[in-house]
Amino acid sequence: MKIEKAIFACGCFWGAQYQFEHAKGVVRSTVGYIGGHKDEPTYQEVKAHLTGHAEATLVDFDAEQTSFSELCKLFFEIHDPAQTDGQGPDIGDQYRSEIFYLDEKQKKEAEEVIQILRDKGYEVNTRLTPATTFWEGEEYHQHYYDKTGGEPYCHIRIKKF
């Protein structure tokens, strides 16, 4: 196994985690917060727009089974990258569409996927940002839909690549 990491923000992290957890090659995922200005933010602080963080999913994946580019494609399939500062009924900058890249290779691959979408006529307002500290979310947020038996309300927005 060759474990690599990726960090994606695309609305409510419950649904994003659910989708990534069920993707080929993903070995672990964690929901949390990234991209803000306060150390150790809490959900209540992020929700109240006090920290500037996005709700995000840290994905550990086996690079021998999948690639960062494939995870980027899934990222774009499970949310609306044209929407700014929100997803569906979830409105606010904590629900923004953003890829937090860990190195220049990830940045380049994300840019390539975004260009494919734009060439197909899709509007993409997703931000590409160097990753900063990822703060793990509270335990009750981890694997929320597995714990509750619910179904994520995010759904496929863009047809498969």
Rank of each mutant, 00 (worst) to 15 (best):
K2Y: 15
K2S: 14
E4F: 09
A6S: 01
I7N: 03
I7D: 05
F8M: 08
F8K: 00
F8I: 05
A9N: 11
A9Y: 06
C10Q: 03
G15Y: 02
A16P: 05
Y18M: 02
Q19C: 06
F20L: 12
H22F: 15
H22P: 12
K24I: 09
V26Q: 05
V27S: 00
V27H: 04
R28N: 06
S29G: 00
V31G: 01
V31I: 10
V31M: 10
Y33Q: 04
I34R: 01
G35A: 07
E40M: 14
T42W: 09
T42V: 11
Y43L: 03
Q44G: 08
Q44K: 15
V46G: 01
K47V: 10
H49C: 08
H49R: 00
L50I: 04
G52D: 08
G52T: 04
G52F: 13
H53N: 14
A56K: 06
A56D: 10
L58H: 02
D60T: 13
Q65G: 04
T66L: 14
T66M: 12
E70L: 15
L74A: 13
F76V: 01
E77K: 15
P81R: 08
T84Y: 05
G88A: 11
P89S: 11
P89A: 07
D90N: 07
G92I: 07
G92L: 03
D93H: 08
Y95K: 00
I99L: 03
F100D: 02
D103R: 14
K105H: 13
E111C: 04
I116G: 04
L117T: 06
L117Q: 09
K120S: 11
Y122D: 06
E123F: 12
E123M: 15
N125C: 10
N125S: 09
L128H: 03
P130A: 09
T133E: 14
F134E: 07
G137I: 06
G137Y: 05
E139D: 15
E139R: 12
Y140S: 09
H141N: 09
H141I: 04
Q142N: 07
Y144P: 02
Y144K: 04
Y145W: 14
D146M: 02
E151T: 14
P152I: 05
H155Y: 11
I156V: 13
R157W: 11
I158M: 07
K159I: 03
K160T: 06
F161S: 01
F161E: 00
